[in-house]
Computed example of a mutant assay.
Amino acid sequence: MKRVFLILIFFTLSLWAQSYDAYLNSFTYEERKDMKIRSVELSVMLERGTAQLIDIRFKEEYEAWHMPYAINIPINELPKRLAELDKSKLIVTACPHKDRAIMARTYLKLKGYNTRYLVDGLIGLAEFLRGDNAKEFIEEYKLINMKSN
């Protein structure tokens, strides 16, 4: 039984490596552009209900501060929590800077999701959503979510 389990693990890792190899071999300037999104564009998509923001930081980081419209799925829980993602929307991964967001985005891309990472990170998003921008965004976001519920 242990031997069968080890063979399955090896087979799975080999498929993952093959799909990552294929992704890298087909990587283009267009893909490089399409993997990124900025706070301004994300805020519009969130207001329209066409994107889902996934904060992939650890639980403790999220509890310390977070965006109320983001879903916290820590990067180390992502594989077992895929059912929480809405495949009809653009999935945007984010962390304070972008290192973990890039990893999560690549993983989701290889799983068949339409996904980007927040290039200016959660810190950039927080900076963008200040003052009038925050007020306008929250009003629009609440209006869209009331209509969809």
Results as ranks from 00 to 15, higher is better:
residue 77 E to A: 08
residue 94 A to T: 04
residue 96 P to T: 08
residue 69 Y to K: 00
residue 68 P to W: 08
residue 43 S to L: 05
residue 37 I to H: 00
residue 90 L to E: 02
residue 40 V to D: 08
residue 66 H to E: 06
residue 89 K to F: 05
residue 89 K to D: 07
residue 101 A to Q: 02
residue 65 W to C: 10
residue 79 P to G: 11
residue 25 N to K: 15
residue 70 A to C: 01
residue 76 N to D: 15
residue 27 F to T: 03
residue 99 D to V: 14
residue 66 H to R: 10
residue 80 K to L: 11
residue 34 D to W: 06
residue 91 I to W: 01
residue 66 H to I: 10
residue 75 I to P: 01
residue 43 S to C: 13
residue 96 P to D: 12
residue 23 Y to W: 14
residue 95 C to R: 03
residue 46 L to G: 00
residue 62 Y to K: 04
residue 35 M to V: 13
residue 45 M to L: 13
residue 42 L to Q: 00
residue 81 R to W: 07
residue 18 Q to C: 08
residue 41 E to C: 03
residue 31 E to Q: 13
residue 55 D to C: 03
residue 43 S to E: 04
residue 76 N to G: 06
residue 94 A to S: 06
residue 24 L to Y: 14
residue 21 D to T: 15
residue 62 Y to R: 02
residue 43 S to Q: 02
residue 29 Y to V: 13
residue 69 Y to N: 04
residue 65 W to Q: 08
residue 99 D to W: 15
residue 77 E to V: 06
residue 26 S to W: 14
residue 56 I to A: 02
residue 92 V to N: 00
residue 61 E to S: 12
residue 41 E to R: 06
residue 43 S to N: 08
residue 39 S to V: 00
residue 45 M to H: 07
residue 25 N to V: 13
residue 73 I to K: 01
residue 21 D to E: 12
residue 28 T to A: 10
residue 65 W to G: 03
residue 47 E to Y: 08
